[in-house]
Amino acid sequence: MVQKIAVPLIAVLIFLLLWELLVWANGWPNYKMASPSDLWPAFWRFRELFFVMGWDTLWRTVVGLLLAIVFGVGLGMIMGFSRIMRDALYPLLVGFNAIPKATVVPIIALMFVGAHDFNTILIAFMISFFPIAVSVSIGLSTLEPEYRDILRSLGASKLDIFWKIALPKTLPEFFGALKVSVTLAFIGTNLMEIVSPHGRGLGALFDSGKTNSDYPLMFAVLIALAFLGIVLYYVVVALEKVFAGWAERSPT
């Protein structure tokens, strides 16, 4: 337990120390590269903004992610159960995913100008549903026929098979995808927050730091984003432990 907390903590401290050392040794001014010791004052000066903006970023990311889960699982189910739908939707999906979302951001920002929350959630959703849809569809379509047959031979309905076998069996893949999606959703939220005029959220704070040449503030925002990302990631890990902990083999 001590090791589990102490080791990562020491690693982070060493990382910050090296960073500080790097900046100090090179004599970089803080507009070239802020050092960790510049971050705390920058954070403290704008601490209220950090909490308000951080909350904005967090809730919009989570809502986008929830939408991505609902839509991704639904799409994954359709593609997982029907060969025709898989053949029809897969190229569309791949094509959609291939478009760099950074290029979609200005389009969406213009399309729904002023609707900050909606814009941001939409991008977070668009960028993060793909891994979920793919993992669920693959999980379902690669279900060994015997698994289906043990229930089908008893007269079970498709829904029974889905709830009792297909869904739980897909959960490890689903959580694997969700870990990727969490990070992606954050990227989506921030892209929109940075681009959107008069935006809110940490991305907007970052943008204002840029406008005012407040480099320590920009770096402090990066750290805040990393912190939120870590929190959300571990929320997913905790959920995975609860719902798909069986897939983890005890090391022997």
Binding site: D149, L154, G155
Partner: peptide, 19 residues
């Protein structure tokens, strides 16, 4: 005419549910 509950099946792959 279709599946019925009076049949039990076992395969080469035991297909137990891991969870």
């Amino acid at each position: 005419k279709g599946p019925r509950a009076t049949v039990g099946m076992a395969f080469q792959n035991p297909v137990l549910l891991e969870w």
